[in-house]
Amino acid sequence: MKTPFQNFTGIAATMPAANINTDAIIPASFLRTAHADMGKGLFGLLRYDDEGKERPDFVLNREPFRRASILFAGENFGCGSSREAAAWALKQFGFKCVFAPSFADIFYENAFRNGVLAAVVAPEDLEALTALPPEGNVQPFFEVDLSAGTIARMDGTVVAFRIAASRRDALIRGDDEIDMTLKHADDIAAFHAEGLIARPWLHAPLTQKERS
């Protein structure tokens, strides 16, 4: 069991650039030990200057976005390296969801595995959400309802996001993927046993030849 995803209201930060890659989300320099503070490393080289001081113009260094739990991002978010630390860093910072017009395949899976909601929102809907209402200075609070599949801004603007029903339900239940797969343990064992006879080049133990 994982912590089930619950509907919430939170602050959204916007990073509209396309193709934000996982190197940008968590730079390699934060991956040299097994227990680094990933939340601090999130967007490390965008957030801090060469001396390690915060760059004041970066969105997550500004109030109220230091407390953001929702990220509105551009297309192909999370492309590049498979590093799951990208999802860990977002989660440890406090992000519970990322909404973007599209996601890179491996990041999408990694986010899901960590209970971070990654869901697709049409570009025009993202624009509608992130455009400031005419009166301005409205707090950037949004309500995320996973079962309904909607994001609502406090002024009443509501848009839908897309997620496969099975993924949605798994997040709401807090399914653990490994536990779910272990329910098929007998089938896996049978498949392997059958493969030993039918496809021994794939299923028999890897065996080294004598090195010449």
């Binding site: 498979s82 590093r83 799951e84 999802a87 491996i106 899976e109 990694n110 595995r113 960590n114 993927e177 490994i178 797969t181 272990l182 098929h184 343990a185 896996i188 392997h192």
Partner: peptide, 14 residues
């Protein structure tokens, strides 16, 4: 794959 899926393969070979 990411690290969770590495764990998935280690645990289940799938």
């Amino acid at each position: 794959v990411g690290t969770s899926e590495v764990e998935h393969v280690l645990a289940t070979q799938t």
